Computed example of a mutant assay.
Amino acid sequence: MGNELRSDGPDRREALREQLIRVRIAGEVATPREGNLLHYRRMVAKDPGYQFGLKLKDWTFDETLAMMARLCGVNPDPRHAWGIDTIDPDRTLDALDAMADRIAAAARRQATVLLATGHPERLMGVYRAVEDGLRAAGCAVLTPAAGWSYHVPGSSGPKYREITYTSGVAALMSKDGRLEHTHDPQPMQVMLRELDSAWPDFVIADHGWAGAAGEAGIETVGFADCNDPALFAGHAEGKIAVTVPLDDGLRPEHYLPLTAYLLARAGIAPTHPSDTP
């Protein structure tokens, strides 16, 4: 990571802003405009695959596009139907700050925490670093329903999926042991049922993991791409505390500066620089 994020305050934020744009976590992103608009229409149509476990109000397409422009920074023009779309890096940074403040508060009160990701191949390092910081602050990290399995539909037939944990971060695993991408809220719903009345105080997640937790009324912060409108709609409706807009499909090392910024802002950064992601 070099020296790019060693300074504090505005300089650190500006350095991260430049890096977000350079690697396309924000700014002009690789997530295509046509895919974004298709997903917005599917959320509006209440397609379960695009609700992320949230029981959302009736959104129109125009309302959804305007909301995504406001919270994520996509192009607000409905006539822009194809090609490049955008995530506003300042909205990403503002949401990161808000997420960090929530994480800091959870650390101070030694909250019980659940962490889960539908993008384990990309974002696991972010979650693991936050987990380590929260554990060091005295938080209890819950790991319910480990080993619970089910089958999801697939083009070649149902596919086996099992809840597994990398340290304390939940993800789905296939039959051959690979960590898998998912939008499904069902695993989080199962985890909360197993916990019964002993729900976590705080959830850090994405996709359906975050949506199901937010719908349950748990304080939830999460990450979402510009083609994932449900979590932004959940934030607009007050069900998701913070939704950080970012391209969630890049190489894991691209998220290291973002992770370092988040930990430093939350006050849970490692004591030794060599331990910092």
Rank of each mutant, 00 (worst) to 15 (best):
D196F: 10
D206L: 01
L93P: 01
M1G: 12
L65W: 08
T31Y: 05
P277G: 07
F223A: 00
I240G: 07
L65Y: 11
I218Q: 09
V152P: 00
L256H: 10
S274H: 10
M188K: 11
V126R: 00
A224F: 03
R79D: 10
N75M: 14
R24G: 01
S7K: 10
F202T: 11
L179E: 04
H119A: 04
R265W: 06
P158H: 03
I103T: 10
K55N: 13
G35K: 12
D228V: 04
G118L: 00
A230Q: 13
E215D: 09
M43T: 09
A69H: 13
T31V: 15
A111C: 12
H39E: 15
T31P: 02
D94A: 10
A111I: 12
P270S: 11
T164E: 10
R128T: 10
D206T: 01
K159Y: 00
G177T: 04
Y150R: 10
R70K: 11
P185R: 09
Q51P: 07
D275A: 11
R251H: 14
T243R: 04
G125I: 06
I87N: 02
M99W: 00
G53F: 07
P76Y: 14
L20P: 02
R193S: 10
Q189F: 05
L256G: 02
M99R: 02
M173K: 10
V242Y: 03
D85K: 13
Y150N: 06
G147I: 07
K46V: 05
A104P: 07
G147A: 08
A233M: 15
K57T: 12
L263H: 05
K159V: 03
A140Q: 15
L20G: 03
D225H: 02
D8M: 08
R42L: 15
T86E: 15
E180Y: 02
P144T: 02
W209T: 03
L38P: 04
E121F: 01
Y40H: 13
I240M: 15
D8V: 05
D62F: 10
S156F: 07
E215Q: 11
E237G: 14
V242K: 06
L54C: 10
Y50N: 09
L16D: 03
